[in-house]
């Protein structure tokens, strides 16, 4: 190696090292400055319901959700046909977030005449890249009241059911995980208790397990599906497990959830245990509708 080549190598190394020093750059220096704070997952489902049942989402303090749910279906008999659909069940509901983790709400469904109220508490928030909190957990308790049951004229209903009032309680532990920015899933063990039997051989305590998932298609559209497995359904009338497939469309303050399902009920205790239709596309069984949810922020953050 002669003198000039070694000079050349030195010059090259010199500039290379200074260049490295230059780009051992200020940005990577800044990366080390970030404080180590837990980052919580957001938008696991984005909407407070997956579709039928509640999701682990709760709104932040002061948010008021005004919601209108509807389900349309045709009667099995072809005798009367109306425009779009023969029957509809509407539920008008309000939810209010008292704190960031605690929400109360309620609603009334006009077809099955069920009033329902619920409390929802977020127990655990899933953290990003941390083994400490790999899932989100929400405790959910609902109470529903049915003034006149649709079983009044049912051959199988006990005699004393007429004009009696039934209270049903639904308790759920909602466990959800956001697996990737696009995919989240939820498991919802459910316990439902009825204050009195309204069908023959009606079990007062019923158990179910819910499965739900969301797949984000793009920024504003996601596909959702939900299914509840009943472990001890009513035997005297045939009931089926509720299933739902839908599309969620998130538009600023308005969240829309379009869905196809086999249940016409909108309160937890009713749609989980009292769905009397199979999931298929025949008249009478096929239900469609949407949940329209408007979010009003009664409490605006101050930007310091």
């Amino acid at each position: 190696m002669n003198n000039s080549t070694s000079k050349y190598i030195f010059t090259f190394t010199f500039f290379f090292v200074t260049f490295l020093g230059f780009s051992q750059d200020l940005l990577s220096k800044l990366d080390k400055e970030y404080p180590e704070e837990p980052v919580y997952e957001i938008a696991t489902f984005k909407t407070t319901r997956i579709g039928l049942g509640h999701s682990i989402e709760v709104r932040k303090k002061g948010a008021l959700e005004i919601s209108l749910f509807n389900r349309f279906w045709n009667l099995e008999e072809k005798t009367k046909k109306r425009f779009i659909a023969d029957e509809v069940n509407l539920r008008f509901g309000l939810n209010y977030a008292i704190t960031d983790n605690f929400t109360v709400g309620g609603g009334y469904s006009n077809f099955d005449k069920i009033s329902d109220g619920f409390i929802k508490y977020k127990l655990l928030k899933q953290q990003k890249n941390a083994s400490k909190a790999p899932v989100s957990i929400v405790l959910f308790q609902a109470i529903s009241h049915r003034n006149k049951t649709e079983y009044e004229n049912n051959l199988y209903a006990p005699d004393d059911i007429v004009n009696s009032e039934v209270y049903s309680y639904a308790s759920q532990i909602l466990i959800a995980k956001k697996f990737s920015p696009n995919f989240s899933a939820q498991l919802s063990p459910t316990y439902i208790n009825h204050s009195k039997p309204f069908l023959n051989d009606q079990p007062l305590s019923q158990f179910a397990i819910g499965l739900g998932a969301r797949y984000k298609v793009n920024g504003h559209i996601s596909l959702v599906s939900e299914y509840y497995y009943n472990t001890n359904p009513v035997k005297s009338v045939s009931t089926y497990d509720p299933f739902m497939f839908g599309i969620n469309w998130e538009l600023s303050h308005l969240l829309l959830q379009f869905q196809f399902t086999n249940t016409r009920h909108l309160a937890e205790s009713a749609f989980i245990t009292q769905t009397q239709n199979k999931f298929n596309f025949e008249d009478g069984n096929f239900h469609f509708g949407f949940n329209a949810i408007f979010v009003l922020h009664t409490n605006k953050n101050k930007l310091k």
Binding site: L27, L30, I42, R59, G219, E250, S252, V295, K302, L303
Partner: peptide, 23 residues
């Protein structure tokens, strides 16, 4: 050089924060 986390933005309305970050 400047570096920031997008999640550290705060909004007047909380739903905006979610839309901003996720959508």
């Amino acid at each position: 050089a400047i570096s920031m986390l997008m999640r550290a933005f705060t909004f007047k309305k909380d739903l905006m924060y979610e839309h901003f970050n996720e959508s």
